[in-house]
Simulated assay, not measured.
Amino acid sequence: MKYSFSLAAFAAFVAANPTPTLDKKDGTLSVAACASAVTIAPGSNPFASRTLHANSAYASEIAAAMANVTDATIQAQGAEVAKVGTFLWIDTIARVPLVTTMMQETPCTDIVGIVIYDLPGRDCAAKASNGELKTGELAKYKSDYIDPIVTAIKAAPNVAVALIIEPDSLPNLVTNANLTTCSSSASDYQNGVAYALKNLNLPNVAMYIDAGHGGWLGWDANLQPGADMLTKVYKAAGSPKQVFGVSTNVAGWNAFSASPGEFAGASDAKYNKCQDEKRYINAISPLIKKDGMPAHAIMDTGRNAVQGLRQAWGDWCNVNGAGFGVRPTSTTGDPLFDAFVWVKPGGESDGTSDPTADRYDSFCGKPDAFSPAPQAGQWNEAYFEMLLKNAVPQFT
């Protein structure tokens, strides 16, 4: 399957990647791949010499939205967002062919970011992003989802790839094991993540296992169990050498560094010393490393420009007043952080605010959640424009 581009999307893509060639016959793009196979050395920083790829899928989504906007400033700022490197979520089997598209369009200067996100019983502690596979369909996850992704990446050994492995999955097993939906998914989660890690352990790939965020596993009672869960699955996968560490704050709102911290004044703050992601990673990394797993991190800064917006640390849905955060960079100021990256595509909803809708989650109806909002993954133009307005740094 080949991805189709609108002219506007193609223009945005060309602006972000000056060397693509348009195939006039089928409308696909090709770029200058590396002349030889890419090897990302374990222990290195895979982002240090590469730019996070501005993928065509997000650029196309923005271009389609901007076609319905009359404000020239918003149009121009939207075009700039399309040039920012952003991870692509492969959250259904139907989207797996996009991996091949990403491989074909990524130049040698870039590293393409992909989120692996389709476990059986996905999103076991919430409703907004429930997946297509039911608990017990692990064999289908392996054969129809992971295996074709492996094939697509193997077919493009000259392309550097960064993978985030199954956001929220292992953290849910640490803190939500009391929920039937999570306890029944535990085996599929652990075996599915281990299978992904083992089979995606390719020389041109850097993998980061999702570790939630400081407001989740950063609590004193959760740090060691969280580290134990991560290293348990890592070892079950055979300690794959292309695991570089963890991802944090995926689709989240926490600050990298904030003093005293957004919830430092809460009555239970004494039980969580990880008041920002810097403190969280510096607290959990030694626990992970002690058990033999690489302990570097990448952090999602896509929507965390504004702090103090949430009523509670666990409020995760379409936080009102948010803004685009620091652009992707390997200059983080902390040796444990390989990069700040954009993971959640700004403008795509976290979940619907309509209480009568299928997959409605009460977190999306909270006072600090933006309303109205469509179903998870669908475009919300008003929210996108809010992210632009509140961006730090601003888009000009």
Rank of each mutant, 00 (worst) to 15 (best):
F5W: 13
A9I: 07
T21H: 13
K24R: 09
D26N: 15
G27C: 01
T28C: 08
V31M: 15
S36P: 06
V38Y: 00
G43E: 13
A54T: 10
S56D: 07
M66D: 09
A67W: 02
N68F: 01
E80K: 15
K83C: 05
K83P: 01
V84A: 10
W89H: 05
I90V: 14
V96S: 07
V96I: 14
P97V: 13
M102V: 13
T106K: 05
I111S: 10
P120N: 09
R122Q: 12
C124R: 04
I153A: 00
A156C: 00
I164H: 02
E166P: 07
P167E: 09
P171K: 09
N172C: 03
T175N: 13
N176H: 14
T181G: 06
S184M: 00
S185N: 04
A194Y: 01
L200Q: 02
V205L: 12
G212E: 04
H213M: 10
G218Y: 04
W219Y: 11
L223V: 10
P225I: 06
P225M: 04
P225D: 03
D228R: 03
T231L: 07
Y234I: 03
G238I: 01
K241P: 03
S247Y: 12
T248P: 05
N249C: 00
A258T: 09
F263N: 06
A266L: 01
K278C: 14
Y280N: 04
I284L: 13
P286E: 07
A295K: 02
A297P: 04
G302K: 01
Q307F: 01
R310P: 02
A312I: 07
D315G: 11
A322C: 01
S330N: 14
T331N: 11
P335Y: 09
P335G: 11
D338E: 12
G346D: 01
E348N: 09
S349D: 15
S349A: 14
D350H: 06
G351W: 12
D358N: 12
C364T: 15
C364L: 13
P367W: 00
F370D: 06
N380G: 14
E381I: 15
